[in-house]
Amino acid sequence: MNEISVIGGGSWATALVKILTENSIHTNWYLRRSEQVRSINRDAVNPDYLSFLKLDNTKIYASDQLDEIVARSKVILFVVPSAHLDKVCAAIPKKDLAEKFVITAIKETVCPDNLLPSAYLARYFELEDFQQAIIAGPCHAEEIARNKKTYMTLCGPNESFISKISKGFASSYMQVNYSPDMLGVEYAAIYKNVVGIVCGMAEGLHYGDNFMAVLVANAIDELGLLLHSLGAPDVRLGSSTYLGDLLVTGYSAHSRNRTFGKYLGQGYSVFEARQLMGMVAEGYFATRGLMATVSSLGLNLPLLQTTYRVLYNHMAAIDEFKLLERNIK
C-alpha cells in the first residue's frame, strides 16, 4: 500500500495520518472544514486537534471535497463519529466504493439500527467481507502524536490485505497485531467507551481506587458476557486486543469518555458536560446503541444500565451509583 484516503478530521484521524505519512504513505485527507484544510496544506498543522503536532504535508493532499478524496485511492479509511457516518455515506455514490477496500476506525454503533460501523458500511455500499478491515486500540491519539509505545490491532477476514496495510501503520513505537475476529474486537472497542464514562463518574463522585478496581473487574465480566451472547468466537479475553482499550479508557487522563463521565459525577448535566468537552465523547452514542442491543439479548449489565440511565433518563449519578454499589461484586 502506497496511498490511502482518510475521511475525518478529528484527533484520531490526525494521529493515523501522522503514522501513515511517517511510513511514506501518500495520504489523501478529507476534512469537513475548509479552515482545517488550509492550515494543513499551509502550516502542516490541524488547528482543531493535536495542534502541537507538525505533520509531513509533503505526503498529504488535504481537501474538503469528499468525492475527490474518495476517487484518489483504492483504500478508504473512515474515521468519523458514528453520528455523522450516515451523512458522509450519503455523499458518496455507492459505485465509487464498489472496487475499493474499506477500513473502519469508528468506536460507536450507528443509529437507528445500532449496527456496528463495519456492518453499516458493508450494508450501505454492498461490500464483500474481503473488502473490509477494522482498526482497534489501545491507541490514544495524544500518545501516538508523542511517539509513545502503542499496540494496534488490525482485524478482518482478508489476511493478505491486512498484511499489506499493516506495513503502513507499523513503526518503532507502533506494534501492529492481527485478529480475524471483527465482531468481538469491534464490540469490545465500543463497550470500552461506556467503561470510560462510568469510571469517570466514579472519579467525579470521589470513589477511591479500591472501588475503581471493582468497577473495572465487573466491566471485564460484562464484556465477556456480551461477546458470548453475541456469538463472538471463543477468545482470550485478557489479551490486549480485547482489554487494552477498556483499561486505558477507564484509567487514562487522555480518555475523553472518562473526562465526560467525571463532569457528570461532579454534578454537571449531560448537556453541560457535552458543552465543556468541546468534542465528541464516543460513549454518549455508544451507550444508547449498546443498550438497545443488550435489551434485545435480555442481558443484565449493571455498568451499562447505570450509564444509560444517567445519560438518557437524566438520573443523578450519585443516586445511580448508590444502586450500582449493590449490583456489583
Rank of each mutant, 00 (worst) to 15 (best):
N41K: 01
R42C: 07
D43L: 02
V45R: 14
V45C: 11
N46Q: 11
D48W: 01
D48M: 00
Y49D: 01
Y49G: 05
Y49T: 03
Y49N: 06
L50D: 05
F52K: 13
F52W: 10
K54Y: 00
D56I: 02
T58P: 03
K59E: 08
Y61F: 15
A62N: 09
A62F: 04
S63V: 05
L66E: 08
L66Y: 07
D67M: 11
D67F: 00
D67A: 12
E68H: 11
V70C: 07
A71T: 06
A71L: 08
S73L: 05
S73I: 02
I76A: 02
I76C: 04
F78D: 11
V79S: 10
P81I: 11
S82Q: 01
S82K: 00
H84R: 10
L85K: 01
L85S: 06
D86A: 13
K87E: 15
V88E: 06
C89A: 15
A91L: 15
A91P: 02
I92P: 12
P93K: 09
K95H: 12
D96G: 05
D96S: 15
D96W: 13
D96N: 14
L97M: 10
A98Y: 07
A98K: 15
A98D: 11
A98F: 07
E99I: 06
K100F: 04
K100E: 09
F101H: 11
V102G: 07
A105P: 04
A105Y: 01
I106F: 01
T109H: 01
T109V: 09
T109M: 04
V110A: 06
C111W: 05
C111A: 14
P112L: 09
P112K: 04
L115G: 01
P117T: 13
S118G: 03
S118Y: 09
S118I: 13
Y120I: 10
L121E: 07
R123S: 14
Y124K: 09
F125Q: 01
F125L: 04
E126K: 14
E126G: 03
L127I: 03
D129W: 05
D129R: 13
Q131L: 10
Q132V: 15
I134H: 00
I134M: 06
I134V: 15
I134N: 08
I135M: 10
A136F: 08
G137Y: 00
G137E: 05
E142Y: 14
E143N: 11
R146T: 07
N147D: 14
K148V: 13
K148Q: 14
